[in-house]
Amino acid sequence: PGLLEPMSTLVRVPKSASTLGIAIEGGANTRQPLPRIVTIQRGGSAHNCRQLKVGQVILEVNGISLRGREHREAACLIAEAFKTKEKDYIDFLITEFN
């Protein structure tokens, strides 16, 4: 269903560094209902993949929708996705629009 989001893009981030290297803000019941990327750290996996940008909103992580999830829950899902050894990448469904 996430793929039906207008103007959304699937970005696969290989785990190329020991950190993911993004900061997010937002989550359900805040002014920013879906997590938005506010920082990309140089040298992190996200920076290395060159496709994630500050300001993008994350709709899904490995096919799991972040809609309705509070900030901490969304952050945990992303942290778990980075930590798991099942995959050597994370798929983000992102949109440029809030």
Partner: peptide
Amino acid sequence: REKRLTLPPSEITLL
């Protein structure tokens, strides 16, 4: 719009 303004800001988490 009113409701939106009353929603709190989010914390920021580095991942």
